[in-house]
Amino acid sequence: MMNSFADAVADIKDGATLIVGGFGLCGIPEKLIFALRDSGVKDLTIVSNNCGVDDWGLGILLANRQIKKMISSYVGENKIFEQQFLSGELEVDLVPQGTLAERIRAGGAGIPGFYTATGVGTAIAEGKEVKMFNGKPYILEEGIVGDFALVKAWKADEYGNLVYRKTARNFNPLVATAGKVTIAEVEEIVKQGELSPDQIHTPGIYVQRLLQGQDYEKRIERRTVRKAN
């Protein structure tokens, strides 16, 4: 357990590869992102499904010109992203969402590659090995391991067992497995034994650093409501 977000990211150096949990702005490690902004580390390669919006989430690091390369499935919500991409400042590798998830899962599980039908016959397949199984073509995709993995969970115990809430789970459990060092921020830390072993989503073995954040903002990207009856 650590108390300082600044200390938790102090050894993340220029040029590091980070795998970051979240889907849109849901389940993102917002305090760790602030800490990276403050540390000023640059030339980061970031593996994350999205890249935040202009002033929130990973968009903060983008606006601060700390990201060299993004590996994502969808980046459409961010004007700064567009500017940096079109000017050639930012490298982008677009990966189908399921392939991205499985590459992270595989990386964390010690599987260097796997075959999938996703992307066969499209630009995604260019330069990739094709293998036939039962008469159908599949392409080889590689596992991803990061220097650091940044995770947001709902609750943890002191050992680092994690529980997520609703769709804020998304990429976080896979991301937690795929960092050489995994840093988790949570809303609440309880004593060891207070979480039911049956309910753990991420076993604490994957978590090297654990922090409790305060006052989560949890921005909503698209607030949609219906009229009460």
């Binding site: 849109g24 609703k166 804020a168 909503i220 949609t224 009229k227």
Partner: peptide, 17 residues
Amino acid sequence: PVEGEEDPDLINAGKET
């Protein structure tokens, strides 16, 4: 959700509550 019951931890793939 009805107004006031939006949950930031519960969205769809279009990022809508």
